[in-house]
Design a protein around this nucleic acid. Sequence first.
DNA 1: CAAATTACTTGCAATTCGATAGTAACTATA
DNA 2: TATAGTTACTATCGAATTGCAAGTAATTTG
Lengths: 114, 114
Amino acid sequence: MGNHRSCCPISSSLDIFGDKWTLVIIRDFFAGKSLYSEFLDSPEKISTNILASRLKTLEKHGLIIEGKKSIKTGKKSYKLTKRGKSLYEVLDVMANWGLKNIKGTEKRISVPAP
Amino acid sequence: MGNHRSCCPISSSLDIFGDKWTLVIIRDFFAGKSLYSEFLDSPEKISTNILASRLKTLEKHGLIIEGKKSIKTGKKSYKLTKRGKSLYEVLDVMANWGLKNIKGTEKRISVPAP
DNA sequence: CAAATTACTTGCAATTCGATAGTAACTATA
DNA sequence: TATAGTTACTATCGAATTGCAAGTAATTTG
């Protein structure tokens, strides 16, 4: 998957998840969500086209995998791959930074270590 | 500065630096850069309008401060505030993630702890 | 069978991005 | 002193991305 701007691991990481939505979706995975409709329910109110395109690129980068539709519920589920789960530390440090440095933020979604 | 999408510290952090460029600039600060022209020189090749606008919002959020132009060199310099320096851990964990998970990345810019 | 739900796609206007060119202020060189 | 160069931007404009709303196909529930 090599068209990153430079060989810098920081800019290359940002090439994957440097936007306003991708890590919000990953956060939701850690919070236990796995269904399209569950991601839509989050307070940030992602729109359907953005969600669909982010899920696609997350899969492309091997951070999540799509499951089949459940025969019982008719719902498709997604889950984090091992690589996706390795983003835990990134989210954790960002959450702590936000809590310390942005007023009005609060710990709400418990992000259990994977 | 309160118009974040939710009270989540992760999404609120992303409201500030959730894009492809902001953390690249912060990385450069940690690498010792402080001049407009130095940021332009980075291998990612940020364009001038993006750099100027990012410096502006970084200042607005209190992560950097603008210095006056030097009378000797005619150059203006920017530097990280304490709050800006507190982003060190975020960069550090992202750099490690990239090194482990994105092939072709390499440790190049030494990021000394602030 | 009709209505609802789920997971999208499509269309479109508005915003943002990125490349380039231009500019104002100053500095160094001839 | 005139000229060229440097610095830190701003302006412009086409391209890409975003966000909202509406539409759709495949189930699934009443």
